[in-house]
Write a protein that binds this DNA or RNA. Structure first.
Lengths: 127, 127
DNA sequence: CAATCACCTGAAGCGCGCTCCAGGTCAATG
DNA sequence: CATTGACCTGGAGCGCGCTTCAGGTGATTG
C-alpha cells in the first residue's frame, strides 16, 4: 500500500472553470491561499484537476457564497487534511456557519416581505 | 397648504445609530452619497433626524443587507423624490431586486442542505 | 516555421462600502 | 473657567476577494 494519490488528475483549468463556475484566476488564487492543495500537473507544467477537486471546489463555492471567509475555509481545509481527530472541530465550524446562514435566511425573508409590502402599495396606487 | 416639512427633527445622531443599527459614520456617509437628504440641524449645527428618517434608514439597511448597491439605492431614492410619476420605475426596481433575493434564498437553502448533509456524516462517524 | 492558444508566474491594482483620523465647535458640568 | 462629551468636516485608509497585467513556456495547427 503506497501513498500513491489517485491518478485521475485529468481535468484542465479551462474545463474546471467551466464545470465549477469558478474562474481560472480564482482557482489559482484559492490554491495560493491554501484552500486547494496537491493539484496535479501535466508534463507541460499546466494544472490538472481531479474529480475530487471538482467536488471540493463546489463545496468551497457554496460556503463562500454564503459568507464563510477565506480564512475559515482555509482552516476547515487544513483540519480535514490533518485527519479524523479533527472531526469535532470541523463539525463545530459547520454548525457555527449554519447559524449564520439561518440569520441570513431570516434577513432575506424580512426583505422579501418589505419588498412585497411596498409593491402592494404601488399596485394600489396604480389605478 | 405650505411646503412646510414635518418639524419633527428631534433625533440625535447617537440615538439614530442606536435605533437603526447603522453607525454615525455610516449615516453621514449615506447622506454624503445622496441616500439621505434634508436631514435637519440643531442650532449647534448638529444633525437632527426625524421619525421618517428612521423608517427610511431601516429600509436602506434592509435593501443593502440583501445586496442592493449604493448606486441603485441612490437611484431609488431620487425617483421617490421626483414624485408619483416614477412609481412604475420604482416598482420595477423592487421587482428586479426581489428576483435577486429569491436567488440568494435558493443559494442559502442549497448551502443549508450541504451543511446538514456533511454534518450527518460527522454524526455517523462520531461513534 | 510562424502563429495561435491555453496556460504559467509573481506582483500590482481594483471596487465596494464603509471606517477612522485630525483638528475643530458647541453646550453642559463641577 | 477648564473639562468633558457629543458632534462637526474633509479626506485618507482599510479589508476582502478577487482580477488584471507583464512577460514567458510548450504543444498544436496551417
Amino acid at each position: 500500500m503506497t501513498t500513491q494519490p489517485p491518478t485521475t488528475d485529468t481535468i484542465t483549468p479551462g474545463e474546471m472553470a467551466e464545470r465549477t463556475g469558478v474562474s481560472i484566476d480564482t482557482l489559482r488564487y484559492y490554491e495560493k491561499e491554501g484552500l486547494l492543495q496537491g493539484v496535479g500537473r501535466a508534463a507541460s507544467g499546466h494544472r490538472r484537476y481531479s474529480e475530487h477537486d471538482v467536488l471540493w471546489v463546489e463545496v468551497l463555492r457554496c460556503l463562500r457564497e454564503t459568507g464563510m471567509t477565506m480564512q475559515q475555509l482555509r482552516h476547515y481545509f487544513e483540519l480535514g487534511a490533518q485527519g479524523k481527530h479533527t472531526e469535532n472541530e470541523r463539525a463545530q465550524m459547520l454548525r457555527d456557519h449554519r447559524v449564520l446562514v439561518e440569520l441570513q435566511l431570516a434577513g432575506l425573508h424580512n426583505a422579501l416581505s418589505l419588498i412585497d409590502h411596498k409593491l402592494s402599495f404601488y399596485r394600489e396606487d396604480q389605478k
